[in-house]
Design a protein around this nucleic acid. Sequence first.
DNA 1: CAGTGGTCTAGACCACGGA
DNA 2: CCGTGGTCTAGACCACTGG
Lengths: 233, 233
Amino acid sequence: MEKRPLYEQVKETLLARLAGDYWRPGALLPSEPKLAGEFGVSQGTIRRALDDLVSQGLLARYQGRGTAVTEHTPFGFFHLFREDGTRELPESKTLRISVNPPSRAERDALELASGKKVIRIQRVRYLNLEPKIFETICISHDLFSGLAKMATRDLPNTVYNYYEQKFGVPIVGKRERLRAAAATQDEARYLHIEIGAPLLEIECIAYSHRSQPIEWRISRCLTDEHYYCNPPE
Amino acid sequence: MEKRPLYEQVKETLLARLAGDYWRPGALLPSEPKLAGEFGVSQGTIRRALDDLVSQGLLARYQGRGTAVTEHTPFGFFHLFREDGTRELPESKTLRISVNPPSRAERDALELASGKKVIRIQRVRYLNLEPKIFETICISHDLFSGLAKMATRDLPNTVYNYYEQKFGVPIVGKRERLRAAAATQDEARYLHIEIGAPLLEIECIAYSHRSQPIEWRISRCLTDEHYYCNPPE
DNA sequence: CAGTGGTCTAGACCACGGA
DNA sequence: CCGTGGTCTAGACCACTGG
C-alpha cells in the first residue's frame, strides 16, 4: 500500500497530465465530482489537491464555470511586471549553448555526482522589444544530452514545457533567491547599459517530483521599467 | 447578518488577538475542538482559518502538540537571509522623523485624502553589526500623530507591533515589489559603499483589516552577503 | 434551469507527542 | 494512555455561470 496522503497522489497524477498534453492550456478540467469518481476518492480530497495546484499557479478556479489550466507560462514564469502592473511574455534570443564541467555552485545546486557534466545556455530576453534580462541556464548533461547539439535558433522560448515534452522531466516547483548585482561587461553589452549598472539577480532552482533539482538559472534583470512581485498580484 | 464567510470572520478575530497580547508568542492556542466550540462553528471551519494564518506565517502547527503563535517577527519581517541560509534579527538606528505633505507616490500608496500629511522615518538597519539597509517609512499623520513627536532614540526596532499596541492598528498583510537600484549619495554614506553601487530595493505596503494601506516602506539593501527569499525556505 | 465551485457540517480513523 | 493535529468521507446548502 501507498502510505502518502491521497491528495498528494492525486496531485502527482494531475501534475503529470498538466505537464504533458493531456489537457490544453485554458481548457477546463472535469468537474470535482467527476474527478472524485475517476480517482475513487471523495470530492473533498480532490478539492485539496486542486487547491494546492491553484496555489502553485497551475490551475485557476472560476465559480460556476469550472477549473481551468492556467494559460501561458505553465509554471508561473518570471514574476516581472511593468510599473503599471501589466505583464508581458518575454521573447528570448539564445546566445550560446555549451557543455562544461560544472562549477562548485552548479554541482551543489543540481546535486550532481562528481565527473558529471552540465549544459550551459545563455540567453537575452526581451520585454516590450527591449533587451531586459541576461540569463544563464544550467542543466545536467546526462538528463538533457540531446539538447547540447541543438542550434541556438531552435531552443524554444519557454523551456519548462520542453523539458517535459522532449525529455520526460516535468518541472513542478521552484525556489528563488534575489539579490542586486552590478552588470558585467557581457551583460552591459547585451542590455545596452553601462558596466556596473544595477541589475536584479534572480537565482532560481527548478525541481521535478520528489524535490529533485533539474535546472539552475541566473537571470539578471534591468528593472528600470519593471518590478518583481511574488506572489503575482 | 454578516455575509462574509465564517472562516474569514474567525480569522479576523484571531488576527486581532494575535496582534494584541491575548496570546504570548510561543504559546499554544486552544485546540481546534475548543475553538470550534467557542466560535460556534465546526472544526473544519476553524481548520480553514488556522491554515490561512499558518500560511501567513503567524501560526505554526505541531502534530500531537498543538498550534502555536510564531516566535519573533510576528509578521515575517524582512525575508533576508545570509548566504549560508541563516537569518538575523536586524538592529536599527533611526536617523530622522519628519512631518511632510505627501508626494504623489505616497498619497497613492496610502490612499490619503488631499490635504492630509504624512510622517516620514528614515533608518539604517544593521545585519551582523554592519549597516546593510537604508529604509524610508511613510505613514499617515492622522493615524500616528503621536509618533511625530517621538525622539528618534525611542522608536522601537520592530514597528508593526508598535502600531498595534500604541495606536490600535494591526498589520495583517503586505505587498512587496522588488527592483535593483543605484545607491544615492545619502545611502552610500550610511552603508559605506560607493555612489551608484547596486542595491536591492524592496517597496512594501502594509495593510490592516479590509485591505486598508497603513504603511509604505522603501528598503534599500546591500546584498553582498545576503539574499532575499519569499517564501522563507 | 442545471451544473459548477464555495462554504460548512459531522463524524470517522490515523500518526504523533507527552505524561 | 489521552489529546493533539492530519487525513478522508458524505452530504448539505449557497452563489455564480451558462444556456
